[in-house]
Amino acid sequence: MLVLGLDTSESPGSVALLEEANLAVERVLPEPLRHAECLLPTVEALLAECGRTRDDVGRICVNLGPGSFTGLRIGLATAKGMSQARRIALVGVDGTVAYRQRAAGERRICVAIASRRDLVYARWFSGEQPRSETVMLHEADLVERLRAEKRPLCVIGSAARRLVDHMADSSCVVLGPAEALEPSALAVARIGALLREGRLHELEPTYVEPILA
């Protein structure tokens, strides 16, 4: 079955196609911050390149966040529309788990996803298991928390590089593998391919923060 992965949670966004052992391709959206314009044209281009059509897609996996609220809604609304029109199975994937899967060998992990200004979404994992919910922190507070680490910890996610730059004096905190430092629709597709189908109507982005009105 052909699985379509969508990730518009951050910039750059990406789309991916995955089919068991046959196919695993990813394409980065050409223009950052223009997810709504680029998403479907990029899906169409990638399908054509792989000799497939939209009618072959049997499952859509979409990154539910955390990330940019607007970006998350662009991906999810597009996925819901496609799913609703042709009853294509839809699966929402937690963005922290999609990062976590790409640092396979590591035991203790902190996923750090850049938010606006100096804010970072953070979640800790022990092996495969999350040790916390995703929280939002000021970068300085997260740096302080990471400095206090006494055991080896691998930092991944889009904010990891920036964080680890502040950690030159720490012997415990290390930067994760390059493939785990950027969002990836292929990682979303790989995880979503194994999950149970979600309920189209109930899927919502993971906002983490309440609304500040």
Partner: peptide, 20 residues
């Protein structure tokens, strides 16, 4: 409002695309 517009527009485009 751009946020609300995006949701309807993306959902509609997704439907149109899948329906051809």
């Amino acid at each position: 409002l751009v946020g609300p517009l995006l949701v309807g527009l993306c959902h509609a485009k997704g439907m149109a695309y899948a329906l051809r």
